[in-house]
Amino acid sequence: MITVNNRDQLDWTENMTVRDILKLMGHTYSLITVTVNDQLVEDEDYDSFIVPDHAFVSVFHLAHGG
């Protein structure tokens, strides 16, 4: 089981990537920052970064305006 944004829980599967999690969560917006267990995962690693079981994943949406 993994936890996303301290709220949603997903069943963990072997070789699950950050990209798989984003698809399962329905994230299509590209301007996001993702961490797994408090460590940054860069865009180019979304397809290759394997998320371990019991991980805490955070997806931050970045919106214009400041």
Binding site: N5, T35, D38, Q39, F60, H61, A63, H64, G65
Partner: peptide, 17 residues
Amino acid sequence: QKSGILTICGDQESDMS
């Protein structure tokens, strides 16, 4: 929302448009 050294404040949705 916090993770590690990062904290973000806001609704993470509304856009300046």
